[in-house]
Every structure is written in structure tokens, then in C-alpha cells.
Amino acid sequence: MPRLTLAEAEALATAALAAAGANPAMAAPTARALVAAEAEGQGGHGLSRVPQYAGFLANGRADGAAVPAVVAERGGAALVDARHGLAYAALDLAVAEAARRARSHGVAFIGIANSHHAGAMGLPVAALARQGLVALAFTNSPAAMPVPGGRRPLMGTNPIAAAFPRRDAAPLIIDMALSEVARGKIMVAAKAGKKIPLGWALDAEGNPTTDPNAALSGAMLAMGGTKGALLALVVELLCCALTGSAFGFEADGFFTEEGNRPRLGQALLAIDPGALGGQDSFAERIEFLLAAMQGDPGVRLPGSRRAALAARAAAEGLEVPEALLAQLRDLAGKT
């Protein structure tokens, strides 16, 4: 399988997105985020998204000319308008605003409106944690799950990510969607002709199903049942009600290049530990807890596998399937 350095992969993705109509301020951070996700082993948010994003740009689902801007602010709060562009430039602006305002006010909440698919949400919180801040990130997504007691999808899988800085180690990163299982696993089962466990999904009539094809035309189920669905509802409200963005059921799905501009919302919360118990106390407390966790031989810290994969990719490069590499080169006009 062909192998690219991270720099080569980033340059190729940037060129492909630029050729599809993304301006330089959009293409570069998008490529950087996709390569970072690929390096962490999150292929679903990695280079495979480049052709999809190119399709969104070509079909007007994303505005390649958009430049995000802060459109409202007060103290530690601000609203970034992504202006229907790909999400990553808006996320970078939100991270910068969150860091600056958290240092000034102790805490910052940055909403993003009129946004798009946000990829691996662990990346923006990691950027804040590397600056010594505790960070949480939320995004809604096109409808995939019902509300408790409901049948039709109204809410997205609505990922949540959190990052906690450490004194002499990489930040602790927690990143998870709120569905019981990733939709990709259901798609894999459908292709393989295998059944899925009960509790993963409902069919189009709202009945529990083990048929992956029925699940794909129905709805995902939230992790933890009602509790997970209510967490997804919290994310929907934080990201959309506060920012004026579209709820999941108002956004067309991302499995086809055609559809509306999704107008999704994201939110970042950044906290300066020095404004509360103090940096030293925070550092001591987090290490005390992590040491207790690792006292159990079966415990692996969240994010440790992704960090190891990223370090390996930085040293050895990325393996890119030949078909995807050919597609990227074709999009970039480098065939």
C-alpha cells in the first residue's frame, strides 16, 4: 500500500480541496485536521472525507469562498459564524477565541453557527489543552437517533469531546459519539450480510432490529438508552438553540453529496484551572486520579491508542489505499 508523509498527505489534500473551490483559508486547516485524524487512526474522519467535501463544495452544500468571523461577543462568550463553509477554519477561530477569553475571564464559551461536518472533535480540545486549558467540545449532526420514546430520527449522534492538560505528559483526551455504535459498523455488517446485535438500531417502523439494512433505513439508538438520548438532546440544544443553528432533523445527511447546507452548530467551553483551585492543585489532582486508574493492570488511559498511532504516523507516514490515493491525485489535478 502506498505511503505518504504527513506533509505530503496534507499538501495533497489541500490541493484537492482548493481545486474543488475551497479558498486557502479553508483548504489548509481542513486538510490539516483530516490528516491529523487519519494519523490517529480515525479513518472515518480522515483522508476519505476529501472526496466527500469536494462533492459538497461542487454541489453548493458548502461555500468555498466563506471566511468565518466573530459576529457577537460579550466577555467570555462569543459567536463565530462559519458562513456555510467547511467547519475547520471556524473551529480554528473558535479555539483562538476560547483560549484568549479563558485567560482573561477564567472561562470561555464559544458557539459556532452555520457550520458543517466537524470531524474528530478531540482535535480542537487537544489544541486548547496544550495551552493549559481544560476544554469541552460539542457538535450536532444530521438526524440519526430518535428522542426517548420516539421512532423517527430527530437528533444526530452528537459527539462530545473533552481534554485535560497534564504537567509532563500529553493531554488526556476523551472523544465519543453518543450512539450505541458507529453507523459505519452497521454498514460493514450490511456489506458482509451479517446480523447486528439488538440494541444498536431500529427499523423504519421503530421496531428493534438485527437486520443491518433495515437499520440503515431506520434509526440509530443512543448509548445507554434514555440517558444517552438525553445527553444527545443536551448537545443539540447547546449547539443549536444558543447559536441559531439548524437542528439535526433540519440538516440533510452526509451520505450523499447532494442536499441542503446543513447549518450545524458547534460549541467550545474552555476553563483556566488557575481561576479555580489553581494550576498546581489541578495538576496534582489529575495525576493522582490517573495513577489510581492505572493501578489496575487492565486500564488504558483514554486517547492513549490514538496518541501512539499519531506518533507512529509522524515517524513512518500514512498508508493510503491505492484507490483513495488515485482519487485524491485526480481531484488535485496531479494524475
Results as ranks from 00 to 15, higher is better:
residue 5 T to R: 10
residue 5 T to S: 13
residue 9 A to C: 12
residue 14 T to F: 01
residue 14 T to D: 08
residue 20 A to G: 02
residue 23 N to G: 15
residue 24 P to S: 14
residue 32 R to Q: 15
residue 35 V to E: 11
residue 40 E to N: 05
residue 40 E to L: 14
residue 51 P to M: 07
residue 52 Q to T: 15
residue 52 Q to F: 12
residue 59 N to H: 07
residue 60 G to V: 12
residue 64 G to K: 00
residue 68 P to E: 01
residue 74 R to I: 00
residue 78 A to K: 07
residue 78 A to G: 07
residue 80 V to D: 03
residue 85 G to Y: 04
residue 89 A to L: 07
residue 90 A to W: 01
residue 92 D to I: 07
residue 96 A to N: 01
residue 97 E to P: 08
residue 97 E to W: 03
residue 108 A to N: 01
residue 111 G to F: 08
residue 116 H to L: 12
residue 119 G to W: 05
residue 121 M to C: 08
residue 126 A to Y: 04
residue 127 A to D: 03
residue 140 N to H: 15
residue 143 A to F: 11
residue 149 G to D: 12
residue 153 P to K: 15
residue 161 A to M: 11
residue 167 R to T: 01
residue 172 L to G: 01
residue 173 I to Y: 09
residue 178 L to M: 14
residue 183 R to E: 15
residue 183 R to H: 14
residue 185 K to G: 02
residue 187 M to W: 00
residue 193 G to R: 08
residue 193 G to W: 04
residue 197 P to C: 06
residue 201 A to M: 05
residue 204 A to M: 05
residue 215 A to R: 07
residue 217 S to D: 14
residue 224 G to V: 03
residue 228 G to M: 06
residue 228 G to E: 04
residue 230 L to S: 08
residue 230 L to D: 02
residue 230 L to F: 10
residue 243 T to Q: 04
residue 250 E to Q: 15
residue 253 G to I: 09
residue 253 G to A: 15
residue 258 E to C: 01
residue 260 N to V: 12
residue 270 A to L: 02
residue 270 A to F: 00
residue 271 I to L: 13
residue 278 G to Y: 09
residue 281 S to D: 03
residue 283 A to S: 07
residue 296 D to E: 11
residue 300 R to D: 06
residue 300 R to M: 11
residue 304 S to R: 11
residue 305 R to N: 06
residue 307 A to R: 11
residue 307 A to N: 03
residue 308 A to K: 10
residue 319 E to T: 11
residue 327 Q to Y: 06
residue 334 K to W: 08
